[in-house]
Computed example of a mutant assay.
Amino acid sequence: MTDPYVSLAQLAWPLALVLSWMAGEILFRWTGLPRISIYGLAGFAFGNLAKGFAAPTDDNAFLLLANLGFGLILFELGYRINLRWLRANPWIVATSLAESSLTFVAVVLVAQAFRMPALAASLLAALAMASSPAGLVRVFNEQQAGGQVTERALHLSALNCVLAVFAYNAIVGIGVFQTSGNLGHAAAASLLVLGASALLGSVAGMLVPRWLRGMGRAGSSGGDATMTFALAVLLLVAVTHVLHLSPVLAALSFGLVARHRRSALGVAQRNFGALGDLLSVMLFVYAASTLDWQHVWAGLGLGTLLVIVRLTVKVGVCAAFARVSGISVRKGALSGLALAPMGVFAVLLIEQTRRLGVDLFHSLAPLAAIALLLQLAGPLISQRAVIAANETPYDKEA
């Protein structure tokens, strides 16, 4: 006869996901808070309460599912990137380079002022460069946001994620996996990972639209196109997971190439329907559940300071580049404010590194605090930014 305790332990994760989803729906309707902030809070609480109770889980399986959910969001972000706009307005690229670089420098300086080792400070700074596409896309879709601040924030997020992945891989290559400390070698290895990932995504972006055209569904906005793109993203992310490549760049490249191959996604495909919603709950709950309360508490002081420094730099740079890039200083500042989310992106990169045998959370205690703070507050800040910019339907009607 099955032990009731064992049966309850096996139900822990399904119950956590259902309760997290229910809490997200209820609080979104009552308070207007972003659902993903509630998922994150629920995941953090579950992850710390379930220790010693929940049944042993296959971390690789959960990480793969989380990456699949992240991959769907990244594909959608890549699909929304307009290369013609970036070519016509190179100041957007300049803004991304400036805000990413200055964020890196500022975080390194502050972390080292608190006597954090150079390697740990550099890894933390590389992660701080990025703005989590998962937070931005889900919040903007939830708010049905559209406009200069929304589109600029999405483009800046895509650019700084690529820069962050390159910097992070190079630093990990130098400090963790290579004894020579050869910067050129580590940078070349990082470029090889990014190149292979982008190539995989680009191939998918060429083949899938061709398949849809061959099946007579290239212009479809119904479930057929949704299923085709979703399955392709799932396969692509699974391949990068197995080959230890970057699912971030692969999924972004897939969406980018698919868009410019003129394969149309209808409005019905946003968030990939019920499949995307389910995997998003898994993604945000899982990411927050990996954060340990002891690590959060140990790094809370420095983590809070670094959150303020990071956001100040991004807002300041975006405001400084606003007029030359064609928008008002106010909208530039709001674009920088919208870049607040970071938690899911950082957690998944750290978890991928952990698969290679290196647990960086022990040496990056402030990261746990930063990830939790920006997992909860980041989506709310992004939501407030697009509302302040009058880029939600409710504000436009008003």
Results as ranks from 00 to 15, higher is better:
Val257Cys: 09
Glu397Asn: 06
Pro341Leu: 07
Ala188Tyr: 02
Val18Ser: 14
Pro117Val: 06
Ile81Phe: 08
Ser325Pro: 00
Leu159Phe: 10
Val315Trp: 10
Leu8His: 11
Leu291Gln: 01
Asn271Trp: 06
Val107Leu: 14
Trp297Cys: 03
Gly40Leu: 06
Gly205Cys: 02
Thr57His: 11
Trp85Ile: 05
His185Leu: 15
Leu236Glu: 02
Ala126Cys: 14
Val162Ile: 15
Leu283Met: 05
Leu245His: 00
Asp277His: 10
Phe53Thr: 07
Ala389Asp: 01
Val203Thr: 07
Val267Ala: 14
Leu109Met: 15
Ile350Gln: 05
Ala126Glu: 00
Trp85Leu: 12
Ala125Ser: 11
Gly135Arg: 01
Lys51Ser: 14
Asn60Cys: 00
Gly303Ala: 12
Ala369Gln: 02
Phe177His: 02
Ala121Asn: 05
Trp13Ser: 06
Ala258Trp: 08
Ser180Ile: 01
Arg330Gly: 13
Ser335Ala: 14
Ala218Thr: 05
Gly336Gln: 03
Thr290His: 11
Gly303Pro: 05
Ser328Asp: 12
Val347Cys: 04
Gly205Ile: 03
Val317Met: 11
Ala232Ser: 09
Trp293Ser: 15
Thr240His: 06
Glu151Gly: 00
Leu252Cys: 06
Tyr39Leu: 14
Ala153Asn: 03
Thr228Asp: 07
Leu235Met: 13
Leu41Cys: 08
Asn390Cys: 11
Val257Lys: 10
Arg310Leu: 08
Ala88Ile: 01
Lys331Cys: 06
Ser131Ala: 15
Ala55His: 09
Val107Ser: 08
Ala320Met: 11
Ala42Cys: 14
Ala111Val: 04
Val233Ser: 08
Tyr39Val: 08
Phe44Tyr: 11
Leu200Asn: 01
Gly343Val: 07
Gly184Leu: 15
His244Ser: 05
Leu348Met: 11
Ala264Ile: 02
Gln294Trp: 13
Leu356Ala: 05
His155Asp: 12
Glu351Phe: 08
Ala189Asn: 02
Val324Ile: 15
Gln10Ala: 07
Leu77Tyr: 05
Leu15Thr: 14
Ser20Gln: 10
Phe70Lys: 01
